[in-house]
Amino acid sequence: MVSIIYVEPSGKSHAVNVEEGWSLMQGATANGVDGIVGECGGSCACGTCHCYIEESRFAELPAPSAGEVDLLDTVAAELKPNSRLACQVQATAGLEGLVVTLPATQG
C-alpha cells in the first residue's frame, strides 16, 4: 500500500492507502474521493481525471505518454505545469505521501 494524500476541490484532504500498481485515479474513485470522474475507466480516453501533482515532487513521476499530453490539452480546469491525468500515474512505493490536488471541475 502507498499512502496518497488527495486534496478535494473543497480543500478537504484524505490520506488514502492505495494498492501498489493501481493508478491514482483508481485509488481515488475506489475510496470515495471527490473531484475526479474517470469516465473512460482508465484507458486514457476522456481527460476527466485531471489532477495537480505536488510541485516539488512532479519530477519524480515517469514522463507522460504522447496520448496523455494530447488529452491534457482538453481538460476542463486550468492546465498547469504540474497537471497530469491520474489514470496514467501508477502508485509506486516511491510516491509514498504524495499530495495530489483535484481541480474544481472535470468538465
Binding site: 493508478s23 483508481q26 474513485t29 475506489a30 470515495g32 474517470g38 469516465e39 473512460c40 475507466g41 482508465g42 484507458s43 486514457c44 480516453a45 476522456c46
Partner: peptide, 18 residues
C-alpha cells in the same frame, strides 16, 4: 457506484463507454 467494473478497467477499459 464509482470505479465499477461494468466497462472493465485500465488500458483495456471499453472503447465504447461514451
Amino acid at each position: 457506484p464509482r470505479g465499477h467494473l461494468g466497462f472493465g478497467g485500465g488500458v483495456h477499459a471499453c472503447l465504447g463507454t461514451a
